[in-house]
């Protein structure tokens, strides 16, 4: 035991709420924990490493000839599509891992510490941006190797990457919410796939929307994923920031505004 006697309770300065500064600090400490975990178990990065490589190769060679005549002219269409699909899909893992993590004893300790309630959640989500970054970089690298030369230039590609990472971070709040309320990690995975699979495929990710039946065109055009993909294409292929860029950011902000408070509330109710 420390030889120091403990401070009597009457002499302690106690506050009943965590300040904003403390919340931010706690969240960064929790993000640091997330990074340590990734470093300890690098196999966590398997999916974000191999999915971009495999998906980019596979879809480009499967659809390239049919849709754009040849693989090379398909690349400006498919790379942004694959990028958004891969990175958004990666955000499911955030929810699943959060669920698994919450079942562990260490979360009891987090709950019993005088820290901001949002910190364990925000920290986990923040650390996962590393995963999105890995997936983003690898998709562009794969595209480059296959002959993709974005007209937008390097700076716009970086902006496009950051946009996708930011939107995925926003979407990960949805899965974090399911992660908190679901009973098991596998059910989170199930729900998430059910939402994301149609959302990413019924979009302009792989095919021109014109080729779809009318009702499906309507869905695809309304689909927020399509707007994000269009925003990325504008940036990488033309170097322009269009209306889709704004719509994507507003959409992301709305998701966070709805799901972050919901998630924190659900998390606190569990305690």
């Amino acid at each position: 035991m420390s030889s120091l006697p403990i401070t009597p309770v009457s002499e302690l300065q106690l506050k009943n709420h965590a300040s904003l500064r403390q919340s931010v600090r706690n969240s960064f400490t929790m993000a640091y924990r997330g990074l340590l975990k990734i470093r300890r178990t690098p196999e966590q990065l398997f999916d974000v490493t191999f999915q971009p490589i495999i998906f980019t190769l596979m879809f480009t060679y499967i659809f390239g000839g049919a849709i754009s005549g040849n693989v090379h002219s398909y690349l400006p269409l498919i790379i942004p599509g694959i990028l958004v699909q891969t990175v958004i899909t990666t955000s499911i893992v955030t929810g699943v891992q959060l669920r698994e993590d919450m079942d562990k004893g260490v979360f009891d300790r987090f709950k019993s510490l005088p820290i901001a309630r949002i910190a364990p959640l925000a920290g986990a989500l923040l650390a996962d941006t590393v995963r999105y970054t890995v997936a983003t970089v690898l998709t562009f690298v794969m595209g480059y190797i296959m002959g993709y030369r974005p007209h937008g230039g390097f700076g716009d590609v970086v902006i496009a990457g950051v946009l996708v990472i930011a939107c995925s971070w926003a979407v990960s709040w949805i899965f974090a919410f399911f992660g908190v309320i679901a009973r098991t990690a596998s059910s989170v995975q199930g729900i998430a796939m059910l939402i994301l699979f149609p959302l990413t495929f019924v979009s302009n990710a792989y095919v021109p929307v014109k080729t779809m039946p009318d009702w499906l065109q309507w869905v695809a055009k309304f689909n927020p994923i399509s707007h994000l993909i269009s925003a990325v294409r504008d940036l990488t292929n033309a170097g322009t920031i269009g209306g889709d860029f704004g719509i994507s950011l507003i959409g992301a902000a709305i998701i966070v505004a709805i799901f972050a408070p919901l998630t924190v509330r659900a998390y606190m109710r569990r305690t």
Binding site: T41, K104, V106, R109
Partner: peptide
């Protein structure tokens, strides 16, 4: 009502070790 204050006054050691297994 004052859970945040209470958390500043207590330490909890659970039946199942509440430490991070991966670290």
């Amino acid at each position: 009502k004052e859970s945040h204050i209470v958390r500043q006054l207590i330490g909890v050691t659970g039946q199942y070790a509440s430490v991070d297994e991966t670290l």
